[in-house]
Nucleic acid binder design. Structure first.
Lengths: 215, 215
DNA sequence: GTGAAACGCGAGCGATCTCTCGTGTTTGCC
DNA sequence: GGCAAACACGAGAGATCGCTCGCGTTTCAC
């Protein structure tokens, strides 16, 4: 039974009470989500135990379940807040491009933004990457992936005017795949080495897409 | 306590008996490994239960533990046999290249071979991909990854004569990352669509590496 | 044929994990 | 101040999983 009562003041279906949160409760929720992020990062979702999350947050298991109906809901809410933060950080993300923008610049901007976000929020990668995502998490995951693909497609379209949509979709899938692989390498290194991998990721994308543009 | 007694006739350390396998036992082992491959493919390593593997193989849990000391040993042995099959299928893998071979041909040959192997043995991907690999599996994983990187480096060297080794290593890491991402997309599709993704993967690698060659 | 060892079974032990429940404390509203 | 609801606790119920153990069956060397 999912708990939609994180925000107070919303009317519910007949079988759920509003549960008016106090300031203390909101603080606990934030605390628990932060602890969950930490635990998910180090052990992954499935291996993370709710008791470990509660311990990390310095509360009892019972308290955790005061705010989340189950372990999955923690990850869902965490992912949701991450998505929200991502949207508000980048507005409409890698969106507004006048067709005059050169490809290299567009790729650089998009990669820089996403890499930056993922470096600041390593949980994002941990939640998205694992094959250990159960039930409703998978839906959320697929939805995010789909919107990402769609956005890349619209980003791509002006650069490859005559390409059939099926092929555009394929190219977008490949781009996202490349980005994920690059992100993994980037997160695995630090400092100058990390910067070098970022540059390499940009190179891969620019050269791949560049060949399609002049084609 | 790891069990090195899969092959009969080997002398052991003082604390382990040889355990002379009968033909029946070898058959059971193959049966169990096949079942494990199936279960690992559908649920991943950590989520796979030894009881499920035994059930899939049509034997009791006790019988499974007659041949494997623990769950990890199953994955280890499975990975080991997979590696062996890979080596014997491709000899020294993507090895002998006279320097006259054009880049595109080299990439095509290497990608085709690896993709083919991974399509025939989907467990390989399942075992390598998950972040859910515990203990000694991780070592095996890292070892394989390292040898793969090294091989790609030596493959790469004749094409980029003046490049410093650190950069060669980075390029190899990127290539392997790209391959993994491409493999995931390839395995997610079938028929003509799959072929198209294989071609796209080759394109990415050729264009990325091509720019380094003429550089 | 006979004995030893390999094979096979399945109930169940111990550990772990998710989630509950009874009880006590704090907070906010009148 | 008083009361209802939100918050907090932690033992433990219930389920699952890896793995064991005792005992019965099959195989094989002699």
């Amino acid at each position: 039974m999912p708990d939609k009562t994180e925000k107070p003041g919303k009317q519910q279906a007949a079988d759920e009470r509003p549960v008016r949160r106090q300031a203390r409760g909101e603080r606990r929720i934030a605390q628990l989500l932060e602890a969950a992020a930490s635990v998910f990062c180090t052990t992954g979702y499935t291996a993370a135990s709710t008791n470990a999350i509660a311990r990390e947050a310095g509360v009892s298991p019972g308290t955790l379940y005061q705010f989340f109906p189950n372990k999955e809901a923690i990850a869902i809410e965490l992912g949701s807040r991450l998505m929200h933060r991502m949207r508000e950080t980048y507005g409409e993300a890698l969106a507004p491009l006048d067709p005059a923008t050169p490809l290299e610049e567009a790729v650089t901007a998009a990669v820089d933004r996403f890499i930056d976000f993922n470096c600041r929020n390593p949980v994002f990668f941990a939640l998205m990457h694992g094959p250990d995502i159960p039930g409703r998490m998978a839906e959320e995951h697929d939805a995010l992936h789909a919107t990402l693909i769609t956005r890349v497609e619209t980003l791509l379209t002006p650069f490859v005017p005559g390409m059939p949509t099926a092929e555009v979709n394929r190219v977008a899938q490949v781009c996202v795949g490349i980005y994920k692989a690059g992100l993994e390498l980037v997160l695995a290194h630090e400092g100058a080495e990390r910067e070098a991998y970022v540059q390499e990721l940009k190179n891969v994308l620019v050269r791949y897409l560049g060949a399609l543009v002049v084609d």
